[in-house]
Simulated assay, not measured.
Amino acid sequence: MGSVNEQADITTKDEIEQLIAGNAVEKRIRSDLTYDEIDNSIDNIWSVLFTTGYLTRLGKADNGVYKLIIPNQEIREVFVQQIREWFNQIVANNRASIDKINQGFLEGKAETIQRELTMFLGETIRVFDTKARIEEKEIFYHDILLGILKNYSGWVVKSNRESGDGFADILLKPKNPDAGIIVELKDVRSLHDLDQACERALEQIKDRRYDTELREDGRNDILAYGIAFCRKRCKVVVEKL
């Protein structure tokens, strides 16, 4: 892919993130666009999204320029899914970084995880520091981490979003039958709250005995991680249970 296309791609991502955040983007719309012209220009995609109903206009057009917004929650989900797919591509292209994060989890290297994870956040999120609800942000961070961890073959990765309440956010069973990893995530509004949120996550792991399933599985070499996110930053702490 050439640099012009890459630049267009970055801009398009940015605009899609703006739409997800509830903002409008201004675009010139061509209603006379034929199907085979779509590939001619990245700008043509906006006309297609508008004419197919994926975007609706806000107010009146000004000289063919429309303020476009996402019409409803169902379609918003489609756009969120697109952002997730872009993220999965970023993950696939950063094998070395993925290995460092997974190895970091195995070896209790909180600083390594924090550094590498921050890099991913920088590449993937500009949206979720705006209007998204806290639960929605936590789900998004959760998905990012799951996307990274599930890339590591041979590990059992369990997520409480699949298992219901009473479980840690993420439970890992590495190849080593003695090892177990528990991860609890928090989203905070201010960078000053990162440390406290990490401690809160660790307390939750201990208070609710999230290690029970791992110990029943004969895994007694357990590492607990509290990870707090604030927009593009994160803090990672680890404790041996």
Rank of each mutant, 00 (worst) to 15 (best):
F105H: 05
E77D: 09
L146W: 00
D195A: 15
D221G: 07
K100T: 12
H142V: 03
R209S: 10
G2Y: 02
D195V: 12
V25F: 10
K173F: 06
F87M: 08
N72W: 08
I20T: 04
N5V: 06
N94E: 14
D207Q: 14
T34S: 14
R95G: 01
I170N: 02
K206W: 11
L214D: 04
T34I: 14
A21F: 00
C230I: 00
E111N: 10
V238K: 07
T112E: 09
R133A: 15
S31R: 11
I139F: 09
I113W: 03
I205F: 01
E184P: 11
R209G: 06
G59E: 12
D217Y: 13
A24I: 12
R208C: 14
I83E: 00
E162W: 02
L68V: 11
S41T: 10
Y225R: 06
V183M: 02
E17D: 01
T112H: 03
P174S: 03
D14A: 12
V157A: 05
R126Q: 13
L202K: 08
E162I: 03
V4M: 10
K60R: 13
V237I: 06
E135M: 13
R95S: 01
I98Y: 11
V4R: 05
I181Q: 03
R219L: 05
D187M: 15
S3V: 04
A132D: 14
D143H: 04
Q89F: 08
I29N: 08
G166V: 02
E77G: 14
L117V: 06
G147N: 11
G2V: 01
S41C: 11
L146H: 02
E199A: 14
L121Y: 02
Y66D: 08
A228Y: 00
E15S: 09
T112Q: 09
I38R: 06
I182M: 03
P71H: 06
K175P: 07
N40D: 13
D36W: 03
G226R: 04
T212S: 07
E85I: 10
D207L: 08
Y54H: 03
I83P: 01
N40G: 07
S153P: 02
L223V: 09
L145T: 01
S47H: 14
L121V: 04
R200P: 08
R126I: 13
W155A: 04
F87S: 02
S47T: 13
L149D: 06
I144S: 03
A21P: 08
I98D: 07
G147Q: 09
V156Q: 12
G53K: 03
E111H: 07
N151S: 11
I170G: 05
N93F: 12
R208D: 01
F105I: 04
G180L: 09
A197Y: 09
R115H: 10
D62S: 12
R215V: 15
D178Q: 15
A96V: 05
T11R: 12
I134W: 13
A96N: 10
D39F: 01
V238Q: 02
N63C: 14
G22H: 06
K206C: 10
R231G: 07
E213Y: 14
D193N: 15
